[in-house]
Computed example of a mutant assay.
Amino acid sequence: MIIINRPASISMDDDFLPEEKRGVYKAIYSRRDVRAHFLPKEIPDDVLFRILDAAHHAPSVGFSQPWNFIIIRDKGIKARVKELFMQEFERSSSMIEDEQRKKKYLSLKLEGIMEAPVNICVTYDPNRFGPFIIGKSSIPETGLYSVCCAIQNLWLAARAEGIGVGWVSILSNDKLKEVLRIPEGIVPIAYLCLGYVTHFESIPDLERAGWLSRLPLEDVLYFEQWGNK
């Protein structure tokens, strides 16, 4: 039996205390996609399960809870996943025509598979409690979106615990399913690297590297209908 030690201060009261509000916003604004700075320090089981319990309490369409979490610590399995990453990294670099852009891309640190003490694959089961799920009949993708909500919960809870998370999306899902023995019908959504880190960067890696910058909020806002600024 897994024992979940949730923070004792959690209250179900409607109002957040000022320090609680600050904690929520601090986790959101200081969360980073971590690819480096991992420490060789194990994540205690009680901390890991607390983070996963937060993920498991994410909202889901029709309360379907369509996620599973594969915890990976084995170095041999990590090495096989790292090989998959390298294959896709090289393939994706061939899509960049501009040589300077390609050189910058190849210089980026985009994963921490071997360095992170724990890897987690988050999967989606589209048939859990199926075939009819409230809310999926018009937009079937809401099941997948639910898994993304669980990933965000995991990410924010990890940040609150001082643990970095990196999402490795440069992978072949078909090959990943073979390595992790994921059955037919189950879809890998995220391959995550978790671990304590030396520090969290103040600016996201890709922004610091000059790859892209964060858009101003007003650039992504419309009012009432598309296009209305």
Rank of each mutant, 00 (worst) to 15 (best):
K109C: 03
L110Y: 01
A55K: 11
R80H: 07
S93A: 15
E201F: 00
E161F: 08
N127C: 06
Y105F: 15
N228Y: 05
Y196V: 07
Q87M: 11
I189K: 02
A8N: 07
P59R: 06
E88M: 12
P117Y: 04
P126R: 11
L52V: 10
Q100H: 12
G227R: 09
I3N: 12
R6W: 07
H199C: 05
V220F: 05
Y25M: 12
D74H: 09
G135A: 09
R32P: 04
P40K: 05
R31A: 00
S9V: 00
E83L: 07
S169L: 10
S169G: 15
A55H: 11
V34W: 02
L212A: 12
K175L: 14
M114A: 07
I163N: 03
P40W: 08
L17T: 10
G195S: 12
V47S: 09
A116D: 01
E111L: 02
I10E: 00
G166C: 08
K102I: 09
D98N: 15
W167L: 08
G130C: 09
I72D: 09
D125Q: 07
A157Q: 06
E111N: 15
E161T: 05
D33P: 00
N228K: 14
I189S: 02
I120M: 04
K177C: 08
K136C: 11
C121E: 00
R128Y: 10
R91D: 03
E161S: 10
K109L: 03
R101H: 08
E178T: 12
R208V: 01
R128A: 06
N127F: 11
K82P: 00
L110E: 05
L176M: 15
K229D: 03
L206W: 09
K109S: 05
F63R: 15
A54W: 04
G164E: 03
R50A: 11
W211F: 08
L217I: 13
D174S: 14
K104V: 13
V61H: 03
F49L: 11
R159V: 01
R128G: 05
E88F: 02
D174H: 09
D14A: 14
S137P: 00
E42K: 06
E207R: 01
Y124I: 04
L108E: 13
E99G: 04
G195Y: 07
W211C: 03
R181P: 00
K136M: 14
G166K: 07
K109G: 01
N119F: 04
V24T: 04
I113W: 00
L144A: 06
L52H: 06
H199Q: 11
P204G: 01
L171K: 02
S92R: 13
Y222E: 08
H37R: 07
F129L: 14
A54R: 08
H57A: 12
S93M: 10
V220M: 13
D46E: 15
H199Y: 13
I3K: 15
F16N: 03
E115T: 04
